[in-house]
Every structure is written in structure tokens, then in C-alpha cells.
Amino acid sequence: MNRIKQKLQENSSKKLLSIYFTAGYPQPEDTVTILKELQSSGVDMVEIGLPFSDPLADGPVIQRSSEIALENGMTTTKLFDQLENIRETINIPLLIMGYFNPILQYGVEKFCRKCSETGIDGLIIPDLPLEEYQLHYREIFQQYDLLPVFLITPQTSEERIREIDEASEGFIYMVSTAAVTGGTGGFGDTQKEYFTRVSKMALKNPLIVGFGIKDRESFEQATAVTNGAIIGSAFIKQLTNGGTSGISDFISSIR
């Protein structure tokens, strides 16, 4: 069974914590170290970011980490090399999050096959919309047991949320705020109303909140009525300031 599905079905009272990091940052060979640290710190799931030159949906922190990762020589091929034996040590669910162009150049079928061979469980491709996925790529994803994860935002209509729920098989990535990644405004009544409204829709997929979660307080607010939350920019900042050795302290400060 796909590890994401398995994880989400575990009957845990704890809210799920997922971490995003950019592969190749801060050092080119940090990928495996970071994954091991995250797993031993008790993180439930990890999104490995495939760096891209033009990350449209990302704020300055992830943009900068992507730039440095690319300067460090990170490529799709190199990432798969680093992940080759990852399932010997890592058993938590792993996703790759990346923009569509590098995947398209690598070859979508080949990319999905490599994901399956290395033990990747799902893909988050922010600029591959539902319609294109369904028309051209669903069968390939299914063939390699990769779960597609789609985003919803406070502006997404109820009708479209239901469509996305129908097409999703793991979880729905609930973007907290109308903003690029790395927002630090905290969550107000607007977000609480949005989290509550969507959680009452009785969707078949769990909701995991991302964008703007940076500490224990925002994690608890984001997960009050949802199933979990994803931390990206705040974790990248932690890597910038404290390197890989501060990972377990950071994680225990969240949950």
C-alpha cells in the first residue's frame, strides 16, 4: 500500500507534521542527511523540493534556496542518484514537489518510473493543473502508484473543491492564505472561517494545510480543524541559520 495512504489511515490523535525542503540546499549532498534527521525527529512526511529557476508560487526564501541549490549543481538526475537507496533507511512517506518544466524535460513517464523505483509516494506539481493532469498524465501516475496532490485556496469555489477531492487520492493541500509561500502574517478570522468551512464539507480526502506555518502557534491554528500542516519556508530559514544539526530542536519546537 502507498505509504501516504497508510500514514493517513493510522489512527493517531496527533496532527500530522510534514516538512518541505529544497534538494541541494544548503549543501549539494545534504538531501539524505536532512531526510534522516527529519525521520528521527518524528516528522510524519517529507516533501523534497526539486529546484527550478522560475518558482512562480514561491516567496523569497524558497526562491533563494532554489537558486543556491541550482548553483550547487542540483539536477533531477542528481536527485534520483541521491535517493537511490533511500528506502534502506527512510520509511516515512516521501513526495517530490516541483514545477512542471524540469519534469517535462526529464520525461514524465521516465520521471514517474524513477520515482517508483526510488520509493517516492506522491507528487505535488503546482503548475500542473487538474485538467491537464486528467487529460494527459493520470494513467502514468496510476501505473507507478504515485499519488497526485492538488492545491485549494481560500478563493477556490466549493464546486471545484469537490472536483479536486474526487481526483485526489492522498490528501488535499490546503493553501492557507492568498499568497505565495513564506507569508508571516499569522492566521486570523478569515483563515479560521476558511479552515472550518472546508472541513465541514465532508470530503473523502484529509486536509493538510500549507503556506505561512512557521511555529507551534501557527501549526496549532492550522491544524485545529484539519488533519495536519506543512512547514516549508520556516524550515529553510532554520537550515540557513542553523544547518542540518539544528533540525531536531526545530521540529520539537513545533510539535
Binding site: 503546482p126 493543473p129 478563493q155 469555489s157 505565495v180
Partner: peptide
């Protein structure tokens, strides 16, 4: 090929 945030 747009992120969902731009869809509406």
C-alpha cells in the same frame, strides 16, 4: 499551466 492560486 498555472498554480491553483491563479485559477479563479
Amino acid at each position: 499551466f498555472i498554480p491553483e492560486m491563479l485559477y479563479p
